[in-house]
Amino acid sequence: MATDASTLRIGVVGYGHLGVFLVEKILRDGPRLGLILSFVWNRNPDKLKGSVPAELILKDLSSFADRRSDVIVEVCHPHIVRKFGVHFLSQSHLMVGSPSALSDPDLNQKLCQASLQHANTLYVPSGALWGGQDIQRMNDSGTLKALFIRMSKHPSCFRLTGDILTDWTEGEGRRVLFSGSVAELCPLAPNNVNTMAAAAVAAGTLGFTGVRGEIVSDTKLRDYHVVEVEVTGPDGFSVNTVRRNPANLGAVTGTATYNSFWNSLLTCKGHGGRVYLC
């Protein structure tokens, strides 16, 4: 429960680059915005020492409920969503930073049921997705006919489960790594395609199977990621957007996405126990 009517207690699960950013923002700016940290967990707790106040470090994630959070923010790996997502929703709202986990239809259904049962909202941040709310409105009105997303990055920025990119060489140029349904793509690149997963949530009638995605390795993209979205509606309606997201070499997440994620967190104040794109 919140400490008072205007304060939200935030638990952060994961302390990679995005987790560090969020924890620092909450500690610095949270109090004046009505946010305070309830705990921070990381797979390697030693990484938290000296950076996070000792009383906020949670060593055993299974004891998260003892910290009585209003919102739990997952920013680590889809595995944590699979293992703890339903439990998190039984106690608090949940913002899923790894929505690629929702490509598993069984898990997706269980999380939606838990959200409804416990009246806690499953928040899905838009991340690098431009126009997510517009896509959702088209979906809800029945006018969304097709959705395609292409994500192009320097090969050092991909974290793939297979070995399809182990042989890249600097200067090789552009290579299409995968093109197909987002449902098939999420297990291949679970840390890279959360933007596509958010789009699949927005486009609920198409879902993860109906939304098409493509990932492209391009050694020319040394300073930014490129996200292209093609939306198709009825009677020849279409919208194409191109977003260039500044990013360092080797970075999974573009720098602009950090602020997008923070702005999403500021909206997590309860929306009736449902799935909510924020």
Rank of each mutant, 00 (worst) to 15 (best):
E74G: 09
G233T: 02
L61I: 10
K25Y: 01
G132W: 01
L122S: 09
C112N: 10
K145R: 14
G171V: 02
G173Y: 07
G207S: 07
G142P: 03
K49E: 14
L48K: 01
K269D: 12
L165D: 12
D235V: 04
L33Q: 15
S217L: 08
P45K: 08
S98L: 11
G254E: 03
K153S: 13
S100H: 03
R244S: 11
L221Y: 07
R82C: 03
G132L: 12
G180E: 08
N42L: 02
D70M: 05
G30Y: 05
K83Q: 15
I72P: 01
L122D: 09
T209E: 15
N245K: 00
C112M: 14
G85V: 02
S6A: 13
C278Q: 01
L61S: 11
S38I: 02
A256I: 00
C157R: 12
S90K: 12
M138R: 11
L188T: 06
G142M: 10
Y224N: 13
L266Y: 02
G30D: 08
F148D: 15
S6T: 12
R9Q: 10
K269T: 13
R32K: 14
L221I: 07
V124C: 11
V231N: 06
H79K: 14
V40H: 06
M95L: 14
G131H: 06
S156F: 01
I80A: 14
S103W: 01
P31K: 05
E184A: 15
G250K: 02
G85A: 09
D106A: 13
F84A: 08
H154T: 04
P99T: 04
A189M: 06
L37I: 07
P53G: 10
F158Y: 14
L18P: 01
T3Y: 09
K83Y: 07
F84H: 15
V229W: 04
C76N: 13
L122R: 01
R274L: 04
Y258P: 02
G97S: 08
L111Q: 03
R68V: 05
K47R: 13
E228W: 03
T267L: 15
W262A: 10
L102C: 05
K83A: 15
H271L: 12
D4M: 07
V193Y: 07
S6K: 12
L33F: 04
W168L: 06
A200L: 10
F208A: 04
V96S: 11
L89F: 04
D140A: 13
C186R: 00
L221S: 06
F178E: 09
S100Q: 06
S141D: 15
I36G: 10
V52G: 03
S103E: 08
S6N: 14
F84G: 10
G210Y: 04
A101Y: 04
H17S: 14
V242F: 10
G207A: 06
M151R: 11
A189Y: 08
Q136T: 00
I164P: 00
T205R: 15
H118M: 03
S90I: 00
V182R: 04
N120A: 10
N240E: 12
P99N: 06
H225M: 10
G34A: 08
C278L: 02
L185F: 09
L177W: 07
C76H: 11
V86F: 04
G254T: 05
T257R: 08
C157K: 05
N139R: 02
D134M: 13
S100V: 05
P234R: 09
L265V: 02
A5S: 14
E184S: 15
